[in-house]
Design a protein around this nucleic acid. Structure first.
Lengths: 212, 212, 212, 212
DNA sequence: AATGAATGAGCCTTCATTCAT
DNA sequence: AATGAATGAAGGCTCATTCAT
């Protein structure tokens, strides 16, 4: 009954760990099935193909993430949209929730989003746009409302500078925690990382830019 | 002869383009040699192996990058280290110089640095540390001098938040320029991107943090 | 219940269609069970194995075929065997009866006989010889009585030239009817094909040969 | 220098033998490369894929076949087309020539033509039509001139009855020679088989049909 | 009688690399 | 310096079959 017991979730867990540590292409079906201790053909039986598995892994994290964001946004229904710091906290809470699903879920998700920016991964772009495009758009809309001082282009680039911070830091979180020699405890505490990241991001997005 | 004419530089150019667009593992020797219009065996002949080629590609960009940074830092030898904004400009100038070597050089370099954070790429980590560790340390030393208000750990994380911005934005620069609908001209002008990024980064690193 | 309702006959019908259109090896258990709308394991449950299914498919057609031939031969029990044209008509009637069982039964049967000539299919040869060898021998005996002018070897080869006509035409009947641009109606009417084939075959078997 | 020495022809020879004995789908790349005593990857190197190999095998026989037919037809340039028996001899000579290329070449070719009638093999149909359609049409045109007494549809079916004889007999020639107990010598002598087939075919095509 | 899940063996193909020339 | 041919290892995937229910 506990998660990780049946074949299909054991595969997903193994895949998440390996994808996070090595990347998608670098991870082989044989590595996944060996780590999950299931038959090689089980992946194709349950997910159709390696790409299908990747999509399933994505869904497992993106769906709760979107739900958590929508839930967070829905809380203050007083006409005016949430403020910047409020928005960031909603995002942070949602990310934390994804991380608590599984130690590698968040890292894989970030790596997946990174991949989606490659020209050669149009399949993946399509998949993400189709499945989650509209849900993310709401969050971006609120974010834009808090940055009316920025031109369209300026907003676009600042958004991606900050997306870069999030994606890079979280997709490499295990390695970074290992590198951070100042703390003893090596449990990855996303809450701490995000608490450190939030003020930095807010300051970045509100910075006086070169246009001024 | 002009650069790009002989076999070995044609290979490097082709590899940079493909690595930037697809990733290292995703790019095959056949793709590289086909695009470079050279024999399949030429890569192994000139670079020993695929890994050797990747290292050569890295050197082609990292060496000029370090030189440019050292040159920039060396200018004001008046005892006191450079200020934050000054430091960032030195970095920006160095990055621009790398980009002008070759339209994909900068993107590949950033992707390579991203890879270096994966646990499974300790070879690469070693290579980068051995070749460039000390030269980069100088830059980091000056940076630390400008952030005395931050604890060791806080500095570590903020540094990586900002490294994340740089790596993500520049490694995906071609895709992002394509996505940026507000500008017509699609020539990748790193100068513009960096001009936008610098104030954001400076604001981020100086933000009032959660420790305060 | 009407035939084709229960699992096992639905499987046979699906198998016949797919075997006829694609061949035995080319047809997978999944295709069969999907088309039959039954569980994948049902084939092994009811027929033991794919080979078992093929044998069952063969029996479903070969048994009625032999019965029809024996019935046709048994009609004139006046000492002397039937004449050539008479024999052919008996065969034709029997083939038509098999075809009326099922739109693909005859085509599959012919494809199966074709396979039986491959050196690598000795299993199949054995199966057919064991189950139907003696019953067919009677028909061949009567045929030989009508070709006393031919040497043993000449008879052997002419027999197979004509078997070739029958097997090829009937196993590809659906494709050939489709190709025949002169007729509008595309229902496969074996009667018409056989009516056209009979005189050709009789003429062929009685031709003045190279030995004369 | 002798054929069968270099990798690429060794592969073709092995493939022809196995395709003839077992069929295309039934023959694996490993069987081919093991018999040819070459590396497994050599097939893909030289022919791109299994399908590419099959097409190459086809070309090796079909091109000489067409040439031989055209050569045979070109001989009597006296205005009137060749007579039926003449046509058949041209075909027979061409088939013999293909057989002399290689002990299995003819059998494989016949099996390939058989496959081309399957609805699921439209690739193959296309390939054959594209490469050889026009060249064969000439032969068929002359054949039609000799059967003016037949309706279009009657001609179509008789043609395929006889194609069936040729394809079946020649694709199974090795098995049939083995079965023919009247002759001691087991060398496959296509000349003998064809000498026996020609009168039968001619008689068949000229038979008084059911339309008369 | 029937089924969803699982499996071992094998498939074709692709990879970076090597070798003889 | 350069190359066409060849190779061992490994890749993702499919197959008929089996098993517990």
């Amino acid at each position: 009954m506990c998660p990780g017991t049946d074949t299909s979730s054991r595969i997903i867990q193994a895949a998440e760990k390996l994808f996070a540590e090595q990347g998608f292409k670098e991870t082989t079906m044989r590595q996944i099935t060996t780590l999950a201790d299931v038959n090689l053909a089980a992946v194709n039986y349950h997910f159709g193909s390696k790409k299908g598995l990747i999509h399933s892994v994505a869904e497992q994290s993106l769906t709760p993430l979107c739900e958590a964001i929508e839930e967070g946004l829905g809380r203050q229904e007083d006409g005016s949209g949430p403020e910047l710091m409020e928005l960031m906290k909603v995002l942070a809470v949602a990310l934390v929730r994804v991380h608590h699903r599984n130690d590698y879920a968040l890292a894989v998700l970030m790596r997946l989003l990174d991949h989606a920016y490659r020209p050669s991964q149009q399949d993946l772009q399509q998949f993400l746009r189709d499945q989650y495009g509209k849900r993310i758009a709401v969050f971006l809309h609120y974010l834009r409302e808090n940055t009316t001082g920025l031109s369209e282009s300026e907003f676009f680039w600042r958004l991606h500078f900050l997306i870069g911070s999030v994606i890079f830091t979280l997709s490499n979180m295990h390695a970074l925690v290992e590198l951070d020699q100042s703390t003893d405890q090596k449990d990855v505490e996303v809450e701490v990382i995000l608490a450190r990241m939030l003020p930095v991001i807010c300051a970045g997005i509100q910075a006086k830019g070169h246009e001024h």
